[in-house]
Nucleic acid binder design. Structure first.
Lengths: 214, 214, 214, 214
DNA sequence: GATGAATGAGGCTTCATTCAT
DNA sequence: TATGAATGAAGCCTCATTCAT
């Protein structure tokens, strides 16, 4: 049993595409085989099981992801720059592993109940620590607002980035870097223009003064 | 003397909980029956099929959702207030129909390929028009930034709100209104504090002057 | 448990109609109940089981049938008159018990494998003896042709009569007696007119003479 | 090295045998599989569903039947010869497709309510036109009696032939052609011998004269 | 007499997986 | 490497039947 690694990669790519489109459980091995131009049984020359396919898809993706993340986290950047780099890196991963990310989003909760997929839970933990760390440091250094619930902000950022995999199509209008730039712009500065923010601040101060009088 | 509709609602609630936790496909009818304290076959006294259960769960949810949305959209609010109200209403729906929302998130893409679930696609369309409309008006009136890709911003808002159903637990620390407030605060004003924004504006202007005068 | 016999008869009539139209196995108890304007479970106040319904339908029919047949068989008629009377009686039974006859036709082979329906096999035997007896006597007395396989002729007559239940509709154009007359006319004298028979006899005799003169 | 179509035919033959013996509805897929020496699920490698099995059994049979019938109908025979040829052809089909014919007899009414089996209804129509046509021509040309209800005669002939499938066993005492000869002899000339017919004619004429006198 | 709700057995079907070729 | 045919477990669903009310 020495299947060529190239064929494996092709087949995994096909499988990932189908898993992402239909969901892991709803995808039959036969469907993957159809897409790959072979019979269902033939896939078992290359893989032990359907489960081992998702496993390989997800772990490959997470390995690459953490290679990128670790580089960012080890670069000694400031909190804002760290967040910017993590977001950008994330969109790059979505660009490269769209299907895997989509699978991760939809199935990881369900899969992680099995021991075999323990690394999903583990990864989730590392993820949380990395982001929360950056956010906390940012608040401490005054580059992020202190009046926000930090765990809420974490979830906000995390979800906001990864769900993009559900609509992102590589080779579309925007490059991953451009999407990252826009996302960061919204998250960091908001969708309200500066002048409007200023106007609202003035109005609010006036209102407060009036309310404080009695 | 438990009249039918009440029992149905109980059973649907049970089913929704399991669907949300395990995914529609991974949920067996027997599991739902177990959870409801009956045998699998007995569910068919109340429902035609497993499919008709999700159907009823999702359509009930969407009906209530649109009742709320339509009220907001018909209230003649300004764009910013519309967005605020839609977000708040959404979190309220998540609070009331957490399981249904989670199912909607995970399964709607997959389900909507079937004619029976055509209303999911339709709802998605109405959804998009409502949000895009508010955003466009906002840009036109100067209360939203004009330099952002509006479709990107729409997806950002839409996903951001609904993914919350995957972690939200009713009766937790934050009320839906509180979560809405924090989300809106991030989305509208960003996570960067005013002073930091101002500082960065000054730095940037300086940098631009230096770069422009080579 | 003293259900009124009248209601029983009504319900049995309904059941027979459905069994005849859809087949015994394909008929659900619920369908019968629907047709009778009640719920499936309610039928069990009147009957022990679905099986006991067909049982009662078939045995009632066969009892009546044999009452009529026995009268004919005991009347001391000649063979031809016996056949005529049996056929006529049969069409009268079809007229009165159309559904039961149709059920008998379709299901008796299948049902008679169960001990409970042993009387079906028994009836079949009596039937065969009655008909074969009349045919044999008829051949012996020269009122039926001797050159025919008698068992074949028996099956021919038997089937020919009973299948009529599959298309007969009471209250149609023909009375049972009229149908019996036409059937008997075909079976006894054939569908070829006398003159044509005579013509063919002459032609054949000529042919034989020619063939005999090598 | 058994190519698929052959295995299919084997399995269909097994299935047809069981369907014919037990009835379509009363036959479980497991029973067929048992008879074929495999597990129930394995049948689905070869067929889509239990329904598609009967479908293929019946349509294959009807196709062959109509091939034979069309040849007869296109041969330009006289009405009597047409009837003789159709009957003979029918018994040959019963000989070759006994099980299929038995299924057709028992189930076609029930199955033909489903769109998928529309061809059963269609075939029934062609059937009727073919037979009625021959009978009508026969009456017009004086080779069939004019005093019989032609539709009744049609049903009589049709049923008479096909019910034979319920008792016919290939390889029995009589060849299909021999059975056809005997059936035709009964149908065309009746079971009453010529001399007896003549005697009865005389008696009847006498009786009529006596009755007309008073 | 009838209803509403459930049971439990069993039927059809799907599907991951195996294995000889 | 791949095919063709099968296995076996499990899933969804149906339905005769029961029973408290």
């Amino acid at each position: 049993m020495t299947p060529s690694p190239e064929r494996r990669r092709e087949l995994l790519s096909t499988a990932a595409e189908v898993f992402a489109a239909q969901g892991y459980n709803a995808t039959t091995v036969r469907r993957i085989a159809d897409e790959a131009g072979m019979l269902a049984g033939s896939l078992y020359y290359h893989f032990d099981s359907k489960e081992s396919m998702v496993d390989e898809i997800l772990s490959t993706f997470l390995n690459e992801l953490w290679a990128g993340y670790d580089e960012v986290l080890g670069a000694g950047l400031g909190p804002r720059e760290t967040v910017e780099a993590l977001v950008t890196e994330s969109f790059r991963e979505i660009d490269r592993h769209r299907a895997a990310v989509a699978i991760y989003q939809k199935e990881s909760q369900h899969l992680s109940t099995q021991p075999r997929f323990g690394y999903l839970t583990e990864s989730r933990g590392r993820f949380e620590r990395a982001w929360l760390g950056a956010l906390e440091r940012g608040v401490a250094e005054g580059v992020f607002r202190a009046d926000l619930d930090i765990r809420l902000a974490y979830r906000f950022l995390r979800d906001t980035v990864w769900v993009a995999a559900s609509w992102y199509r590589p080779g579309g209008l925007h490059s991953p870097e451009e999407i990252a730039r826009q996302y960061l712009s919204m998250v960091l500065d908001g969708i309200t223009p500066r002048e409007e923010q200023a106007r609202r601040d003035r109005t609010q101060r006036k209102t407060q003064r009036q309310t404080q009088r009695p």
